[in-house]
Design a protein around this nucleic acid. Structure first.
Lengths: 214, 214, 214, 214
DNA sequence: GATGAATGAGCCTTCATTCAT
DNA sequence: GATGAATGAAGGCTCATTCAT
């Protein structure tokens, strides 16, 4: 894990102000990178642009991140962690029943902190650029697998508990598609619908899969 | 429309060898562009790379397409047309019943000519790069709207004919998500499942929405 | 001399229509070159632009002129000849008195066919581009020398006949400056004065040099 | 105004070595541009050539001047300022009598720093290339107008004070032509005469316009 | 730590020229 | 003669990276 100061990862002991500002500066640069990715796209995200958004010099960005490639890698890592923590804590806070867990999982993906235009577009930039796919696999693949396994397991429990008979693999996959789909719509559509409608759409799909449970 | 030889525009009479080779050369360059987009991504697709794949010089690519931007535009145009023709002719060949139409629509998206790794990745490159989004809207937006309207209308007919009560907008949207989702999986996953499994997954979702009809 | 059909150089025997059209085509290309030089400047005059103005293909321009450099050389040659013939015939037609000859020389430079914006700007393009200076020397230098010698000689006659005492070299030079000066003004000024005013300005200068003679 | 160290803008206090060298580097690049314009002409002045003359990389030239167009604009600006300061201070240092002022104006144009082959040829490059004419108008037009207005006003004073009756507009114009004329000769002629002879030639013309005053 | 000067690889584009038809 | 396909050299520009201060 890169040493970015995330709210979820408070330094264990009180850090020196130096360390704090260092971490804060790194965080600001990563946020700037996300914004740049979202706004200008992968190919037009330059160190100069990132530096300008973070209100520093490009030299300093490189000082902190060694290379552009590493900056992007750490940005992806940050997004991945942020996302993982979000859904895992949502699941942990929800009831044990699989439908409650699934609902929590869905709801987590529309959390305000996660479901930001900037965030969504930045994800999209990473997905779209085939060059970054190995990076994505390396850093987000494991988490995605975890997420999917969780979903599939919950779908299995739905069968066990309530007598549904759908293949859990496929159902889990479809639930994931629904979430990804509305995400992409929110970014891509010229006139996207609201986040509320997005959420309802996914529930609509979940209801179709598991009638009477959502 | 670029003058590429597309199936729906068969040359009326035998064209002069010059015209033929001209169109063929352009087509080869567009295919090269698709391959480059798929393999190297949007940001690393260079004229030199395209030219190398088409076994010509970059000068010639520009001679035929005036600029890189125009080359990409015509490539997107080509993909759009190819896709539109594919689903429209599939729908035209299918039975009138809405479930048959929907099934034809789904099946068309897994046609061999369309559902190629190269093709899918190229689409992905256009989606992912925010810079190319206006281009996408301008050229593919209308077709996408048509596709969606068609799907929504068919979902409406499902309600009318068979007494289903789901919101057609949302159902159509979900069907679209399922297709897009498996597409993305085929590109993104380190170890993707088969096209057959992809197709079955979508049918699984369609069955959930409209039990007994797929 | 290149074989351009100029009115002053009618082919000695009746040429075949083929030759005629050949010469006419070359002439059209040279006129197109002059226009392009005037409008777009030396550096932006391209074969394609010349060809477009002459309503042919760039290939044909090269067929007729072998290279761009040669096209420019022949264009300069054409301008030089056109200019030489104009002033020499004007001088030949004028009275013998030196003041009449000088006046004829001045008047000739404001002849409509010569004193065209296109022509003036084209000259300017050749002067301004240092690269073309050797070419200019080679092709127009001799004529310029002749022109100047003529002018100096006439200034000498003014001294001999009317008792003026100015150095003929300098006076001839100054007369030339006046003509060149108004020419440049006509091209360069945002709001140039009229050709009539230009002519009067030069006469004003001639009167100053030789009071009572102009 | 570009931040080049010009005589009229002496650094108020000793500048940091950084600033100094920055201005010095820019100045060196502008001098290199002037040399390149003079030697190779407008169309063949490339960033690479300028960089080579300034003994740096083309990248650095762009770092300091943003674009070739801007480099040329700043070069023209530099020449314009240099020229303006030269004649204005010469006029300021001269006596009040109009003939003294005119003589000072003429003399200023043959000052060693101004009347350099490089400088003259560079001016010529800007005049000759029609493409650069709008730039010239925008940057040097105002100064030229000022110069001309000054000259015309002085010619008017010659009439008022000494009873000459020539049109001041035309006389001022002619004086300008004489100066420009010798300038062009110095650049253009294969075997140009000396600067001293050039100066005498202009005085010769001034004497013709205003007998007994030069 | 921080800045920004400096470099150079690589891109898109223009254009003269050659060649096949 | 005439056209336009094809090539490749060269130019302007962007940008990641290195380095001196």
């Amino acid at each position: 894990m890169p040493d970015i100061a995330t709210p979820e990862h408070p330094p264990q002991s009180a850090p020196s102000p130096r360390t704090q500002s260092r971490a804060a500066r790194r965080a600001r640069m990563i946020e700037a990178t996300i914004d740049s990715l979202a706004e200008k796209g992968y190919s037009r995200t330059t160190l100069t642009d990132v530096a300008a958004r973070a209100r520093t010099s490009h030299g300093l960005v490189l000082f902190h991140f060694r290379s552009k490639e590493n900056l992007l890698a750490e940005t992806l890592d940050f997004l991945t962690e942020e996302y993982r923590i979000n859904w895992q804590s949502a699941v942990a806070a929800a009831g044990k029943a699989p439908e409650e867990q699934i609902r929590a999982l869905i709801k987590a993906d529309f959390e305000e902190a996660i479901c930001t235009p900037s965030r969504l577009s930045a994800w999209c930039a990473f997905w779209g650029e085939s060059q970054s796919r190995p990076l994505y696999q390396a850093q987000s693949g494991a988490n995605d697998d975890l997420y999917n396994a969780n979903l599939v397991q919950l779908c299995g429990q739905m069968n066990d508990l309530y007598g549904f008979t759908q293949d859990p693999e496929r159902s889990g996959r479809l639930l994931r598609f629904m979430i990804e789909g509305v995400w992409l719509d929110l970014i891509t559509l010229a006139k996207p619908y609201s986040v509320a409608e997005a959420y309802e759409t996914v529930l609509h799909g979940a209801r179709a899969l598991y009638p009477g449970k959502f």
